[in-house]
Design a protein around this nucleic acid. Structure first.
Length: 725
RNA sequence: GGGCGAUUAGCUCAGCUGGUUAGAGCGUACGAUUCACAUUCGUAAGGUCACAGGUUCGAUUCCUGUAUCGCCCACCA
């Protein structure tokens, strides 16, 4: 006799169930692969892309965590030694600027008034609070990750990894210091990398200025004070009478100067007047021209965005204030020929919104094209002990198929980026982050993991780009540079699951750093998920007020429902839309399977679970079809088609199991044929059990709760049950 | 300016390597339901698979071009 738990008489209650089940999982210890039963030998690893400690999780995080949890739960049930390491990211600039803004709002102080030590104290506290919130949210979403191995990109172990890598690359000449043109953010008071720039359209004036016998066009007259080179294309017939290197005296903004003619092929003869003057200190293109012809470079704008003494009477003015005044003066001097309206893209800093002012500064860079010897290599196409470059590592690993990108078309984007890649500026003039492990004493310079002995050494003030430590994530989380057992077992990892928007920031740099430090790949597969949008396809944002809080979803509909709503219909790499109706549908589905269980358990009350009755042909057919579905679902998950797998299970449970199998079972259940009755009782229970297993990775809570209340003996937690064949 | 992707039922999308009547979910319409279901079940609605060519015995599915939309990259002074 089988007694049904009374709880099935009421509708499924996710709010009560989910926290209780999560606690049970945690206490079981099975999130940690070391505690799994002996059959779990072959490793399967995912490193969680660490959420920034800048706030709370959004639906994008929920999609990420759900996708990864499905993969991990599935592999765990497949008998893999499944490891999913969770963590958080200090997100240097993002976090510091957020805290800075708050302090300024409340106390009216900027970071320089506060001081390095005090600011770091505040940021640390903020990061800690934020971390705690995030962790509890990750748990609410059902993530079966190993909390005993949790990591933070700025903790001691990760810092050691960073220092170790820096030193090694410094000694290999792959990290170098140099006066080069960088993206300076006057608002954030730091450099940023090319990838942290966002271009926004700006309407402005385009001025045509008389420069001796020439007319030059510019949108930025305030940078023109020091311009003493005038550049044109060598084949431009209009200017054929001027010779390269020729000197010309002319009257400029603040009086007479001597200009030098430069001929260079980068000039576009069709744009403007085909002539331009250059400002090498504040323009990448101009800088390149200056380097090519060995020209002088002069700084015009300081790091606060103010004009330097070279601007004469305009010295000390902010560039925006100076512009009009300069134009007035030029007009008065008769140097302004005409002005036009003009729309162009200006570079702004992603985090602060500051207008980027290129500057020549002494910064640290990673050389991506410089050859070095890779001592040990498991990378296809690069032999151990041969010369290679970081760029080649990035290219070969994907090109040769050692890393598979899903969906495949993103590899095109990836290669395109690599082709245009320049050296990576890694130093930042902010305080929150990994401090550069370099010390100076007079003209001496010292780089190592630890500070040098002796007096008078001063450490470099700068910190590293946050992506530097992120780039080490797959191996720094496993204990590198120690040669740990974990590293041996779990690396390379199996899947990197992340958003396509960080393919360059993170994915490429992980490949580069892992190739360089370990001579291998960080992961075998990259799975990109898309952006989660609202029901109308708009990006969720605070200003639109259309954001959806995963915690509210969990509260209102249950995490399981939210998970399924995020996964079904979401092919890798494509954006997905989600609204409450969709989630409500899957909440009903959770209740549907709850009721199916109720029906099945009521129907088998007289059945002996230990027996294996003779099956009717009809029931044999049902079980055979179930096996086909099982195979299809398994293949879909193996090939990362989670959206298909989940939909198939959903469809099978609702429209085959409930609508057909159960409906048609009623006759036999209520009939007098004992053989048919026993047969369908057995079949119903088998179908239920298999479906719970198939559904578990997708809807872990409701399935585990039902499983716990099934009457058969010798069962373990559903999360470590064997995946059906 | 360069690159990538999308265009399939009212809406949101599937359709993997080309093949009999092109699918799902939601929505809509009608009907049935206190017999597992804070409901559920059944039935239905007639989409030139953006457009134009091509390859093929045969294309929504492959190729070329066009149009519209979206995303990414980019130093046009």
């Amino acid at each position: 006799m089988v007694a049904m738990n009374d709880k099935f008489l009421k509708p499924y209650n996710p709010q009560e169930t989910e926290p209780r089940i999560y606690k049970m999982w945690e206490e079981s210890g099975f999130f940690n692969p070391d505690n799994l039963p002996a059959r779990h030998q072959e490793p399967f690893t995912i490193m969680m892309p660490p959420p920034n400690v800048t706030g709370i999780l959004h639906m994008g995080h929920a999609l990420m965590l759900t996708t990864e949890d499905i993969m991990i739960r599935y592999q765990r049930m497949q008998g893999k030694k499944a490891l999913w390491i969770p963590g958080t990211d200090h997100a240097a600039i993002a976090t510091q600027s957020k805290v800075e803004k708050e302090i300024y709002k409340k106390e009216g102080k900027n970071r320089f008034e506060l001081g390095r030590e005090e600011l770091l104290k505040r940021v640390d506290q903020f990061a800690k609070d934020s971390h705690d919130t995030i962790i509890s949210q990750v748990k609410t979403l059902g993530s079966s990750c190993d909390w005993s191995r949790e990591a933070f990109t700025l903790d001691e172990n990760r810092n050691l990894a960073v220092r170790t890598v820096f030193k090694k690359m410094y000694e290999d000449g792959l990290i170098y210091q140099g006066h080069r043109i960088v993206n300076w953010d006057p608002k954030g008071q730091t450099t940023i990398s090319d990838d942290e720039i966002i271009y926004t359209e700006e309407k402005t004036k385009f001025y045509y200025l008389k420069y001796g016998p020439f007319t030059i066009a510019t949108a930025r007259p305030e940078t023109k004070f020091g311009d003493k080179y005038v550049v044109m294309h060598p084949e431009d017939k209009r200017y054929a009478k001027y010779k390269h290197g020729q000197k010309i005296d002319l009257d400029w903004i603040n009086g007479p100067i001597t200009a030098t003619i430069i001929k260079d092929e980068v000039i576009d003869m069709t744009f403007g007047t085909g002539v331009m003057t250059i400002t090498p200190w504040h323009s990448k293109e101009d800088f390149d021209i200056a380097v090519r012809h060995n020209l002088d470079k002069e700084q015009i704008i300081d790091k606060y965005g103010k004009l330097l003494p070279v601007a004469g009477e305009f010295s000390g003015l902010k560039i925006t204030d100076a512009r009009e005044k300069i134009i007035e003066k030029m007009k008065a001097k008769g140097l302004l020929e005409k002005e036009e309206d003009y729309v162009h893209n200006i570079a702004t800093a992603e985090r602060t919104g500051g207008k980027i002012e290129p500057q020549i500064m002494n910064q640290w860079f990673v050389a991506v094209n410089k050859p070095f010897t890779l001592a040990h290599s498991d990378i296809t196409g690069i032999k151990s002990g041969t010369k290679t470059t970081l760029k080649e590592i990035m290219r070969k690993t994907v090109d040769q198929g050692q890393i598979k990108i899903i969906p495949d078309y993103f590899s095109k984007t990836y290669f395109h980026w690599i082709d245009n890649l320049n050296d990576w500026c890694i130093s930042r003039q902010i305080w929150y982050g990994h401090r550069i492990p370099v010390w100076y004493r007079g003209t001496e310079i010292f780089c190592s993991e630890e500070a040098p002995k002796g007096d008078g050494w001063v450490q470099d003030e700068d910190t590293l780009d946050t992506w530097f430590s992120s780039a080490l994530w797959t191996f720094s989380t496993l204990g590198w540079p120690e040669k740990t057992e974990d590293l041996k077992i779990f690396h390379p990892t199996d899947v990197l699951e992340t958003g396509y928007e960080i393919i360059f920031f993170w994915v490429a740099r992980m490949i580069m750093m892992t190739g360089y430090n370990l001579g291998t790949v960080p992961f075998k597969n990259v799975y990109f998920h898309g952006t989660v949008r609202d029901g109308q396809g708009r990006k969720m944002s605070k200003s639109l007020g259309n954001g959806m809080d995963p915690m509210e979803v969990a509260q209102k509909f249950g995490t399981d429902a939210g998970r399924l709503a995020l996964i079904i219909g979401t092919a890798p790499g494509t954006d997905s839309k989600i609204d409450e109706n969709k989630i409500r549908g899957y909440k009903n589905f959770a209740n549907k399977i709850w009721n199916i269980t109720r029906f099945v358990l009521t129907s088998i009350e007289s059945f002996d679970l230990e027996s294996k009755p003779e099956l009717t042909p009809k029931d044999q057919k049902i079980l055979a079809e179930l096996q086909i579905i099982t195979k299809e679902v398994t293949t879909d998950i193996d090939e990362y088609r989670l959206y298909m797998a989940s939909e198939k299970i959903y469809h099978y449970i609702w429209h085959t199991f409930a609508d057909i199998i159960i409906e048609e079972s009623k006759g036999a259940l209520n009939g007098s044929d004992e053989v048919a009755k026993k047969s369908i009782q057995y079949t119903l229970y088998e179908v239920l059990k298999t479906n719970l297993k198939l559904l578990h990775p997708f809807m872990p809570f409701v399935t585990e709760e039902i499983w716990a209340n099934l009457p058969h003996k010798n069962k373990s937690l559903l999360m470590i049950e064997t995946w059906p064949k």
